[in-house]
């Protein structure tokens, strides 16, 4: 039966979901590897969907409440989907004394967001603060997805948003 198999064509869509089992097996269903497992799940889904957390609890022999408790303890884990572009503003001391708060306020205002509502309705932008990125020499520092911006000003931050908006519209 194996020999008459058709050429393997995996669409990204179908791949995405089968990843959960793969992640669990890669980590030997080892409950002490819960945090790496959650990190890998988040890498796959960009957040931790409730049903996935429930799903992984059984093979790890944990209760969903405990998985949820761990997931909510660490600020890296997101239980809500995030926007396509995540702005992470460093809130370390060096950035703070160089007025990073003003940048955050400018982004909030420009995107009509707040601490309670951190993602835009069109799921394009998420704005959040992050603990020190350790790039204090460039303070204030901002991450947009993986890209680091140094010596950011409120104006520069808004400009970055506008550039992305324009690109998205064009696309």
């Amino acid at each position: 039966m194996e020999n008459d198999s058709l050429p393997v064509v995996l669409s990204p869509e179908t791949q995405r979901y089968s990843k959960v089992c793969e992640i669990l097996q890669r980590n030997n269903n080892d409950r002490s590897r819960l945090i790496p497992i959650l990190q890998q799940v988040q890498e796959e889904y960009h957040y931790l969907p409730e049903e996935v957390l429930t799903f992984i609890a059984t093979p790890l022999r944990l209760r969903p409440a405990e998985v949820y408790g761990v997931a909510t303890f660490y600020s890296h884990f997101a239980l809500q989907p995030k926007g396509k572009y995540t702005f992470r503003l460093c809130d370390g001391t060096a950035c703070h004394v160089r007025r990073s708060t003003a940048i955050l306020d400018a982004l909030y205002k420009h995107l009509e967001l707040s601490e309670a509502k951190s993602t835009t309705d069109d799921m394009l932008f998420t704005v959040e603060t992050v603990s020190c990125l350790g790039a204090c020499g460039l303070a204030p520092v901002m991450l947009v997805n993986e890209k680091v911006y140094g010596q950011v000003t409120p104006e520069k931050a808004v400009e970055i948003v506008n550039t992305i908006m324009a690109e998205e519209k064009a696309a």
Partner: peptide
Amino acid sequence: AVGAIDFVHR
């Protein structure tokens, strides 16, 4: 051994 509740958030 039920574990219906746990600490959440921090």
